[in-house]
Write a protein that binds this DNA or RNA. Structure first.
Lengths: 206, 206
DNA sequence: ATTCTTACTTACTAGTAGGTAAGCTGTCAA
DNA sequence: TTGACAGCTTACCTACTAGTAAGTAAGAAT
């Protein structure tokens, strides 16, 4: 395997993913076409089929790469921050960054189109949400033990509340083109988990 | 069949809306086509154009009718219930009913596709959210005065939290085909407003 | 020097999209 | 009895969709 020329090959494939990702995040998977991507990259329609066999395969690759990047960002949060409440803030900021780029969360917009997606893409979307819930559940449980966050019931349920709350805040904020609307909702969602003045003493819930 | 088949003028128009509404709420506006509706109703593509000049006009009619029905349901809640907390529960139940029918909120799914929508539809979507916020703001403010609900800051901001929270809960619950996931999220969202069981004291600031 | 591989292009397909022009048919009012 | 109108249909259009078959230029491997 000829190592050097690979650069151009890999490069084109990831440039395809870059453009496709932006289009899908802004317009959705059903309003996205090979022709859009091809013309923007100055290649032909058929060239995309060389790199990604079909629309379903391209869509799946899109989600896999997006999820990988997202999980890496979560690992980075874990590496940078200790406090659970700060981790939650950083988590919400991840969503805010996407919105600030006039985009919807990739898996959020795909969730809206879910019934029309090919099977492989459906599974990947579900997997993304599951992994987000895993991470949040972990953060919440540790935070509760440490007394930096407070909530009732299973951590998993609160994790789901955060995911769906942030997805909904993005969904509604985008038509208004108003990131502040998202930021406020995010702050309100997370405020339900912070034990206000908890720096001095852990306020146990329940 | 008797002679009243000739009342089918308006009847056909509303049957078109019924079918189109179901398709758009499940698949989205971009994955919906005249052909789907026409074949399901046993009429031709061109017949739809007689009743609704174009896809944009049909889409707008869809939102207008949906919003009218939704506002009527809100008026019904006002007529039936006094307590603000009960009104909020009834409001969330409205969303749950839609989801139980395997549908997404019409304006929620259109919000996801917002950048691809014609202008008239965009305005109608925004209008739907605004009217929901109006109603919720009113309920919340009255409830706060009466002491049946509690929250910090402007009622408008809490109204927005409820709308986006419920929309997000629907969005994420649908891929899982799990209404319980929605119900739980809805309960958690509203529990932040009820004064009754405030054991955790979700961050009552100031 | 030749074959193989990569990364495309050109040229095409069948199918579907939204949309239109023109004509047909049953009902009803004058 | 006429004719206006509502509510369609037939027949068609252009644009775009994903996808394919076959060919090619350039470099790497043998």
């Amino acid at each position: 395997m000829t190592g050097n020329q690979r650069a151009s090959s890999t490069d084109t494939a990831s440039r395809i993913l870059d453009v496709a990702e932006r289009i899908v995040q802004t317009r959705g998977f059903n309003a996205f076409s090979y022709a859009h991507v091809a013309s923007e990259l100055g290649v032909t329609n058929a060239s995309l089929h060389y790199h990604f066999h079909g629309k379903a395969e391209l869509g799946e690759a899109l989600i896999v790469r997006y999820a990988d990047r997202f999980l890496a960002a979560l690992a980075d949060i874990d590496a940078r921050l200790d406090d659970a409440a700060e981790k939650l803030n950083a988590y919400a900021a991840l969503y805010g960054d996407v919105l600030r780029d006039d985009r919807m969360c990739l898996c959020g917009i795909l969730a809206a189109e879910y019934p029309t997606l090919p099977d492989t893409m459906r599974n990947a979307v579900i997997g993304f949400f599951d992994e987000n819930e895993d991470w949040l559940e972990n953060v919440l449980e540790k935070g509760r033990r440490q007394g930096t966050v407070a909530f009732d019931g299973p951590a998993r349920e609160s994790a789901r509340l955060i995911v769906s709350g942030l997805e909904g805040a993005m969904l509604v904020a985008r038509p208004y083109r108003d990131v502040a609307r998202f930021d406020l909702a995010a702050r309100k969602i997370l405020s339900g988990f912070t034990t206000k003045v908890s720096r001095t003493g852990p306020a146990r819930s329940t």
